[in-house]
Amino acid sequence: MFLLNAGFTDRQVLAGLLFVSLGCAKATEPTFITPIPQHMAVDEAKAKLGKTLFFDKRLSTDNSISCATCHDLNGAFGADGQQFSSGVNGLQGTRNSPTVFNAVFNFKQFWDGRAHDLVEQARGPVTNPVEMGMATWTEVVRKLADDSQYVEAFQQIYGQGINEDLIVDAIAEYEKQLITPNSPFDQFLNGDESAITAKQKKGYELFKAYGCVSCHQGKNVGGNMFQKMGVLKDINLQSGSLNEDLGRYEVTKNEWDKRVFKVPSLRLAVKTAPYFHDGSVKTIEEAVDIMIEFQLGRTVPKDDRSSIIAFLESLVGEIPEGVL
């Protein structure tokens, strides 16, 4: 208004406002994405015990499934490459299994954020009938108590007998170690300009410019907010199945939470196809296209898309030694 009253032309005002809007962003190099730490401080003994538990198939009713079955740490970067993981008796859930790597940096766990943290999350799968299928935790405890090594380890580390709280605590402690530091992009953020290629750098600029960073941001390039799937274009218009799952609505029953999901971390996105909550999208290209269409509501040149994907590749870090 004061700009108008001062007799500026529309163009001038526009330029001024644009300057303000962009200039603010330019003034300091904004920290949209930050590197993840090299190490997470953990209780080594608990983490070691947690690791054993993570790989222990006795946590499932028919001794066929461990956490690692669906969260394959060796070949599949903490996910399993399937649309839906198979639990006990080949049963399947309705959601794609996310990677457990860097899950510690997520502000909530699960696609719909129904678990506050790793400890709360770890209580879930064991008694989930389509995952590990144990009837009760009491039964789990009884099974583990048959193993004198467990009994001894729990006694030694926690000073008490095996129980649910201790089991999930140990697993969560182990999961804290499952991070992927030192990605080329983190190195770039830490000042090593040559750590990423020009294309990746361009991809990063586009990632910011197109606004992916509005949702995929912070140290985990995601995992710090909820977003509706299809904020700029109704997801019902998507040809696939992405509109079927009501996401966070199932947890809160708030109308506005329909099809709201936790924005996933993209740090290992290129390694953990298929994509989205129901794993219905097979390639990263398609996934990015869907993002551009439904979350950004705009059209993006193919070239830019591949640059963005190149950038996503620069987010893949190293699995710390001694964790697996």
Binding site: S21, L22, M225, Q227, K228
Partner: peptide, 12 residues
């Protein structure tokens, strides 16, 4: 959530 979306649109 809304702030992020708003921001994108305000920029775009």
């Amino acid at each position: 959530s809304h702030n992020s979306v708003l921001r994108n649109s305000v920029r775009y």
